[in-house]
Simulated assay, not measured.
Amino acid sequence: MMQRRNMILGGFAVLGLGGWALSNNMGGGSGSTELSNLAGAANAQTTSGDFDTSSITEMVVGNPDAAVTVVEYASFTCPHCAAFHSGAFKQLKADFIDTGKIKFVYREVYFDRPGLWASMIARCGGQERFFGIVDLIYKGQSNWARAGEPAAIVDELRKIARLAGMDNDTIEACLQDAEKAQTLVAWFEENKNRDDVTSTPSFLINGNKHSNMAYGEMKELIDAELGS
């Protein structure tokens, strides 16, 4: 766990990113990469207890009082997650989210540093802009995630942030927030350990874990929970 965290966060030095940006390990590129495969040289000695993860906002859409809660665990560098958001999520939104039948929660998984940087950009716009920025990140995944060097990846993510209406000062402040980055990684580790998240996308439907599935199967599971 310590090695994985240090690999994602890295040393605190370069690229104007609060210092967590030297290598470009695209571990989440397969879409279902096992979290246990991540490894790296340890440098910063931190534990999840060092950070107040209650400060991390849960990104929620739909009816907060719904009887059914669907939680998605996803990585921004996961192609299967991008495919889910370009297809099945739109159906889920039309059938269950916009109709107020479910509460939908999106939780980020950090396979790699680019996934963390994308999360920092997505959260930079706050709760109101989050899901719109998520759409832009997934739509552009094949471009920014394969941009090459870390600086090039971050430049592409900056473009997405500007497209979402953020100014340069706001973008840089978010990218340089090293404490927020470390807190997000600690939050992810707590979620992963509690809910036994091993691949992406993964879903909790009223607390029951499911791996990636066709929308028809997901709809049947949700309907069953709704009693319809």
Rank of each mutant, 00 (worst) to 15 (best):
N206K: 11
A224D: 15
A173P: 06
N6D: 10
G28F: 03
E179M: 08
D112G: 03
G49Q: 14
I160H: 04
G115A: 14
G16P: 03
S32G: 09
D112H: 01
I56Q: 06
E189Q: 12
E172A: 07
F51G: 05
M218S: 03
T170I: 00
V14E: 10
S142G: 10
A88D: 14
A118S: 13
A151R: 11
P150E: 10
T183Y: 10
L17D: 13
A39I: 07
F188G: 07
P150T: 10
L157C: 02
R129E: 02
M1P: 14
D52M: 09
L38A: 12
V71P: 00
A147W: 02
V134N: 15
G100N: 11
D195S: 14
W20A: 11
R158F: 09
T99N: 04
S54L: 05
A88Y: 03
D196N: 15
A44C: 10
D169G: 02
A181Q: 15
R5K: 13
C124P: 06
A42L: 12
F96M: 08
Q3H: 13
C78N: 00
M218H: 06
D155C: 02
A83Y: 09
I222N: 13
R107V: 04
K90F: 00
K192F: 07
P150N: 10
L204E: 06
T99L: 00
K180V: 07
D65A: 15
M26K: 14
A152T: 06
N43R: 05
N208F: 00
S54P: 04
M218E: 01
Q45W: 14
E179Y: 11
G216P: 01
R158A: 03
G40R: 04
G49D: 14
M218R: 07
D167P: 03
W117A: 14
D95T: 07
Q141W: 03
Y138R: 08
R129D: 02
A74Q: 02
K159I: 01
T183A: 09
N24T: 14
F84Q: 07
Q3Y: 14
A152M: 01
G126Y: 01
P114N: 01
A67K: 15
P64W: 00
A147C: 05
E217P: 00
G125T: 05
G207N: 07
L204M: 11
E128V: 08
N168V: 07
G27R: 03
I153E: 08
A44W: 15
D195Q: 13
S228P: 10
G227F: 05
T47H: 07
G18I: 04
V68W: 07
A39W: 02
F12M: 12
T57W: 01
I222K: 12
G100H: 11
S36Q: 10
G49W: 05
R129F: 00
H210N: 12
M7G: 09
M213F: 07
E72N: 00
